[in-house]
Design a protein around this nucleic acid. Sequence first.
DNA 1: AGCGACACTCTGGCATGTCAGATTTGTAAA
DNA 2: TTTACAAATCTGACATGCCAGAGTGTCGCT
Lengths: 260, 260
Amino acid sequence: MAKIAVDRLRTVSELLLDMRLSPEKSKVSQIFDAIRALIVEIKLLPGQQISELEVADALETSKTPVREALIRLEDAGLVRIVPKSGTYVTPIRIDRYVEACFIRVNLEIGAVRRAARKSHTSDADFCRELDEGIAEQEEVIARDDYRRFFELDEAFHRALYQLAGVPGVWWTVKGVQADVDRVRHLKTLRNIRKGPQIIEQHRAIRDAIAAGSPADAETALLAHIGGLGTEIETLSRQPGLLEHIEILNAAVKRPHLLRA
Amino acid sequence: MAKIAVDRLRTVSELLLDMRLSPEKSKVSQIFDAIRALIVEIKLLPGQQISELEVADALETSKTPVREALIRLEDAGLVRIVPKSGTYVTPIRIDRYVEACFIRVNLEIGAVRRAARKSHTSDADFCRELDEGIAEQEEVIARDDYRRFFELDEAFHRALYQLAGVPGVWWTVKGVQADVDRVRHLKTLRNIRKGPQIIEQHRAIRDAIAAGSPADAETALLAHIGGLGTEIETLSRQPGLLEHIEILNAAVKRPHLLRA
DNA sequence: AGCGACACTCTGGCATGTCAGATTTGTAAA
DNA sequence: TTTACAAATCTGACATGCCAGAGTGTCGCT
């Protein structure tokens, strides 16, 4: 099996040591966000244990807020709490990943179709928000600001739901995207990027909506985030990506697979 | 404004007094389920306060598990926790209702289409589970067992996701259905039922899947759970339903609107 | 060496207590 | 009666502590 560079195994306490809790927001939400980020960015490996007490000590707080954050992380599917045993990062499951893609694709198809229908009976300014988004995307891609581009991409898709008149749906999508985010992070780690191409696709979606054509909008969206089959193919085609995931999932049980 | 019969305002403690916590399952999940049921069945009215301490006393337990259950209820959108003030049942918002319908319709369209495609290349037994479900539905509808019918209906739709190969999607659907369930409860309270018709629609969906025709499957599904517009129309056409919701939302602030 | 019993440790479930802020209530002045 | 303001009350956020059960290592028996 190919050796793959993986971050050294770090305990939660190590990773959180330099974090300071702001008294402005609730501790629970801050801890939730912090640990979620660690999991999504694969700083915490699948299967790795997260101890309430350890986190509490590292953050100089008590177990209670940590525990409540972990409960919410469990609801989000990022950790598994096993009574009297421990709390563990869930493995990256490709079936969940596929389901998340399924959800996103279908919801977004529905959104762009609705948006296109509404656009049909609205003024020319209907797509202004999309246009502004695309313009800014081009700016940041020009200076390789991928973090910002990631935010803009998210905003663009959120705007689609807004145009469709179902803004809240976005949060549902976000909620199930945990596994997608983890895989996406792996992809960017492996330098799989395609910024300009994405912008072109965004523009195609915008145009179809502006033209008031639900069918074209669906086609454009599918070309963008792809059908389910496409998505899995993409994964398989990336040499070693699935293997990489396997290794990550197994790493905690077999630490000798890890390299510094 | 029309007077509408509404359950007398009951505190959580009253409603939970006869409940006994089983030591087999965790207290949190039992409390979560119990309060969720009370909210969905509109025993607890929108806006009504749910005090941690009150629930804890009624169930002869401590605040901790109650609190954790309430946190999960907040994630589910059923309550709103206001720091240093109280925890309140969220109002029934029709925009959320619409969004939940949107989510369900689009996901289920995707599911039946996929199921139909898979059926196309599978054996004749592909739809057996659906057939068995429909058969049992006919049995229970014959003896007016609406509670059981409700379960079977749910199982039928869950089976659709299973056939599509994305079983986990069902849980996402369930997660966002809180408001739908509340409205549905209102509907059944107002005697809006149509059992035999539903079974006929189930059969149509099954047939389209068995025939391996995605387009027909989508059509049949739309006829069943309806497009978004249809759903809202249904609401508006029910004389007084929207009003009823308004009154429920306002009831707690204006107790004089309530009748025994 | 192989294996089972037992003690010890660790974990999360839960009980209880403290506190600051939000809300309500009592009350007295206008 | 109305209003203003302060005391009393109530609430959830968080801290701390205890407990039973799961896991693990050790030691003695075979």
